[in-house]
Design a binder for these strands. Structure first.
Ligand SMILES: [Mn+2]
Ligand SMILES: [Mn+2]
Ligand SMILES: [Zn+2]
Ligand SMILES: [Zn+2]
Lengths: 144, 144
DNA sequence: CATATTTTTGCAACAGAGTTGCATTTTATT
DNA sequence: AATAAAATGCAACTCTGTTGCAAAAATATG
């Protein structure tokens, strides 16, 4: 993981690479993502920052990170929106997170299974495939 | 497809099989699902019924259909919730819709690809799989 | 068919999520 | 240190979904 100092440096570098100003909000939210072993939703961030940032700022920060390819969304069947840091080489408008997501029915955590690859899917004739999202639900190894 | 009369009879039978009262709202909403070639969200139903039913009734009707295994949800990466009729033998609390969903980036429609089956996915050790959701995005055959 | 019972509906009121405009503050540039 | 550019916080608003309750509709019963 690295010391707190090293993490802050990595975050600063990441923000500068993405041509973003280094602000308290952005550093803090990225820290949360990096410490967390699962996906976060907006309310998690509000809770874990202890309401030190305005709701609106959190929304705008998440949108900015999405735009810059720093985080990606994970599909759900409810109205919640979950985000996780991109591990591949994602850039602006060009995400490369082709991995499986796992939602644990016991602890509720959603995690990226980066090592699990998505098998080929053959669509009916006439369909062009751009992206595949796979979300597996079940029980994670921690809850087993 | 069948005549309008035949569709109404099929819907009435379906509701009775599910031990639900046959009401105007339920018949109308099921008609919409059966006519539609894609998934519907709450706002589609409100639009297409011309606000003849209360919002709350539509929410409750969708929840009832979900509970009874008449419709299923489709995951999205935004806050919207999409629903489609179950074609397999789904029953209360026991859905069997193991098929791929396709979201067209051109027309926006989401469809069930019932003929496309989901390939095996091998999870890391310690994970128990209960359900797999696959959502493919791209361009559908109509928009091609 | 008439009546009683059960279920569904519509309304009002509310809670939560997300958005927008704008003035103020912070960050980056010179 | 001064200036320009960008991000933040606040207020106000919209949109989505929920709950309690009385009225209406559907079903069950004789
Ligand atoms: Mn991921
Ligand atoms: Mn489906
Ligand atoms: Zn778990
Ligand atoms: Zn299309």
């Amino acid at each position: 993981m690295g010391t707190k100092q090293q993490i802050t440096e990595r975050i600063t570098a990441l923000l500068k690479d993405s041509k973003l100003s280094v602000t308290e909000t952005r550093v803090k939210i990225l820290e949360l993502f990096m410490k967390s072993n699962g996906a976060l939703e907006h309310s998690d961030i509000e809770t874990q920052t202890g309401q030190s940032f305005d709701r609106v700022t959190v929304y705008r920060t998440l949108q900015t990170f999405l735009d810059k390819g720093i985080i990606h969304k994970i599909p759900t069947t409810d109205t919640s929106v979950r985000y996780a840091v991109c591990k591949s080489e994602c850039t602006e408008h060009d995400h490369h997170d082709h991995h499986v997501h796992f939602k644990c029915e016991s602890c509720g955590n959603t995690t990226c299974l980066d090592e699990t690859n998505i098998p080929e899917i053959s669509l009916p004739k006439g369909y062009a495939m751009h992206n595949v999202e796979v979300v597996v639900s079940g029980v994670c190894k921690t809850c087993k």
